[in-house]
Design a protein around this nucleic acid. Structure first.
Lengths: 228, 228
DNA sequence: ACGCTAATACTCGACTACAAGTAATCTGAT
DNA sequence: ATCAGATTACTTGTAGTCGAGTATTAGCGT
């Protein structure tokens, strides 16, 4: 009976049922109509699983089951008082308390020294171009919608996405500049590591050479535990 | 046999084994030592599952199984040629091709009209304060590490995280300003909706009133399908 | 009246994630 | 010498996620 607040799709279901009772397929149709598939991941398997779980926890209830013709039965759900409260608490928490997430690109950045620096420069440059293009497309489509009279409130999550995208483009520009002009500290050691890997030296030998050549870049590890 | 490139922890395993053979527990210890738990989510259950899956796909192999005393057996794994290739391809792709992700806050923003505007202002203000504080703490700890001589390369993912955090703080500042001075389009209708919900009017009656009072804010829906 | 595509409405099974648990050994303070 | 707590190393069970599949009906041109 613990708080199963994993999948935000469950929160979206509560919000929709808070407006009016409906059946699962209608939920997904409504979310798509309102262009929320971009901010809330909709998957039929997950949707029906999530509805089942909300039902088990008493946050929603069956209002009616309709059968028209020989089609599959539609079960219409409604929100309960407990569900309303859960919706308010969950949404309030999501808006007010940051949660640590793990974007794949963050993982990739932290593992990037496994590839040679020049390859990484090329890869990041490709990403920069893609994100730059996405930013322009996003801004244009946003502009068209606003011009047509759509209130900003209805696409505020899209504004947020564009803000994050712009920040990533800036980060990439700065990082690429530092990589290209050699300003990024650690770059020399990184480059040397991959030079040595291209030889037939053993791992231990490579590390001995690196530690010798880049003493000052490893000195900090002595008191590394002082940082979090 | 399809490409199971879901969990970036598997990529981290490949990168570690690319450096030297080790057993799963040592992988998690090494990642923690290098402060990568922040960018790659480490969970024992997932780690052993992921290792098993890499083994089944021939990307890693068993090098030896050691038993010391009555402790559980340690199985030492090494990377295969196929694993090296997979590592290079996967990491290259993650660095160069953006993938759509679903941050919880984006979902929350898109659902926020379910709460009354004044409550949302307070909640977002709390988030702003928390992120602002996190940004300062993060920048300080980064500064200390750099001062101690740590090369930026080793914490580049942290720099990225701080850049994203700063962008979120800016976004929140701007949004809060627009909410507070009433500049955000759609705000009036949002406020009215929650006023009407506090009465005992039915949903249909509420919508009739809103559509009447805010005709111009709904006009755009006519050609909403022109935007993506 | 015929087939073709789109929409409606859900189901299934394989895979994944995660917290918690287990059980042994080591360390160091009393 | 003892014993608590940390560290080492992995296992288990439950719950969740996902893509793909299934089956029916509606609309529409020809």
């Amino acid at each position: 009976m613990a708080a199963v607040r994993r999948n935000p799709l469950a929160l979206a279901v509560l919000v929709l049922l808070h407006e009016e009772p409906m059946h699962p397929y209608q939920m997904s149709a409504t979310l798509k109509e309102r262009r929320k598939e971009h901010s809330v991941k909709i998957n039929y398997g997950s949707l029906y699983a999530v509805v089942e779980s909300l039902l088990n926890r008493g946050l929603i209830e069956v209002r009616e089951t309709v059968r028209s013709g020989n089609r599959p039965e539609r079960t219409v759900y409604g929100i309960t008082a407990a569900g309303r409260q859960e919706m308010i608490e969950w949404l309030s928490r999501l808006l007010s308390e940051p949660v640590k997430e793990f974007p794949q690109f963050e993982a990739a950045l932290s593992l990037m020294p496994a590839l040679p620096p020049d390859e990484v420069i090329e890869l990041l440059d490709r990403r920069w171009a893609a994100q730059q293009a996405a930013l322009e497309v996003g801004r244009k489509s946003m502009g068209r919608a606003i011009d047509a009279g759509m209130p900003r409130l209805f696409a505020i999550e899209h504004e947020y996405e564009l803000a994050m995208l712009a920040a990533e483009v800036d980060f990439l520009s700065a990082l690429l500049a530092d990589l290209r002009d050699g300003t990024l500290s650690g770059l020399a050691g990184w480059r040397r590591l991959h030079e040595l890997r291209a030889t037939d030296l053993s791992n231990d030998e490579i590390w001995a050479i690196l530690i010798d050549e880049f003493k000052e870049e490893f000195a900090w590890t002595e008191h590394a535990d002082e940082f979090d």
